[in-house]
């Protein structure tokens, strides 16, 4: 009988929120939430609806003459036929960049969380510092570094990694490198947050229990850092898939990504239905990939 009382132990008194003190019911909650909700409904949800609607307009109209709503699902078929290459390229580049970010970011986050000691905060500041220099200026700077006269190409040519006429700029390598560089902080910060929570004694315990450091890492540190890995890869992959600044500054027309196409269709070609269909497709693909990924990683609670 006393056992029964202990089976529902203090968790009941702690977890069952002390009524009235923690989450209050009543009107205040709605009032506080209202402005932000309205803003997001008006300028995020409704626009998305209008994006879907636009994607179904008759594509033969124009921005000046107006469009007709014809539920032209054929738009989607057309854009897939016409633009499947930049589409796949975007996702491929983003995946590559995410992979590189994960490796580099993990090393960096691990070093900061476990090896930096009292310099932890300073290193964290240094991680986010580049983030505060304008994205475009940063990318232009890469252009300079990777340019044919830049020191990187010179060095690689000297080392015979590159032939005398090979270049880095205007190649996929440059685009992926740029993406990986630009989104690295989005990977490092969540990884650090996860790693920093891990009690180093757990790793010690694993080596005490005869685990080789690599095994200890693989069986203890890595699984515990998974939430950071998942949110880091998402935060990197999603913006990377939609980005076209890197492709524009560091690639050539052979590295056109879906962002270039959408932007061009909207602004230069004035073909809103096509651009909208591409946008919707991109969003749907990304959401689908995210859901599958998150489910497989077993970290649904992140959403």
């Amino acid at each position: 009988m006393t056992q029964a009382a202990q089976a529902v132990p203090e968790t009941a008194t702690l977890a069952a929120e002390p009524s009235g003190s923690r989450r209050r019911r009543g009107r205040t909650g709605y009032l506080l939430m209202l402005p932000a909700t309205l803003w997001l409904l008006l300028f995020f949800v409704v626009p998305f609806y209008s994006l879907v609607a636009t994607s179904l307009f008759d594509a033969s109209g124009s921005d000046f003459r107006g469009y007709e709503m014809t539920y032209a699902w054929g738009n989607y078929v057309d854009v897939v036929e016409a633009y499947w290459q930049p589409f796949l390229r975007s996702l491929w580049y983003a995946a590559l960049a995410t992979g590189i970010c994960l490796v580099l970011g993990y090393v960096l986050a691990y070093a900061i969380a476990f090896k930096a000691g009292r310099w932890k905060w300073l290193l964290l500041v240094l991680v986010i510092a580049p983030f505060f220099t304008s994205f475009l200026v940063r990318t232009l700077s890469w252009q300079l570094i990777l340019s044919d006269e830049g020191f990187v190409v010179d060095a690689l040519q000297f080392l015979r990694v590159l032939g005398p006429d090979d270049r880095l700029l205007a190649t996929p390598v440059a685009v992926v490198a740029g993406l990986a560089y630009n989104f690295l902080p989005f990977m490092v910060l969540p990884l650090f947050a996860s790693l920093d929570k891990i009690d180093p004694r757990l790793v010690e315990a694993s080596s005490d229990l005869y685990a080789h450091p690599f095994v200890g890492f693989w069986k203890v540190t890595w699984p515990l850092s998974l939430p950071g890995v998942v949110s880091g890869t998402l935060l990197t992959f999603i913006p990377a898939a939609g980005d076209y600044i890197n492709a524009e500054f560091l690639g050539s027309t052979n590295q056109r990504v879906i962002g270039n196409v959408i932007q061009g269709q909207f602004i230069d070609a004035n073909n809103s239905p096509v651009a909208a269909a591409l946008s919707v497709l991109l969003m749907v693909l990304i959401v689908a990939m995210v859901l599958v990924y998150v489910r497989r990683a077993g970290t649904e609670e992140l959403l």
Binding site: T2, A5, Q6, V8, P9, E10, T11, A12, T13
Partner: peptide
């Protein structure tokens, strides 16, 4: 009392 006995409540 032990934890869960109601003393804190």
């Amino acid at each position: 009392g032990p934890s869960g006995c109601g003393k804190t409540t």
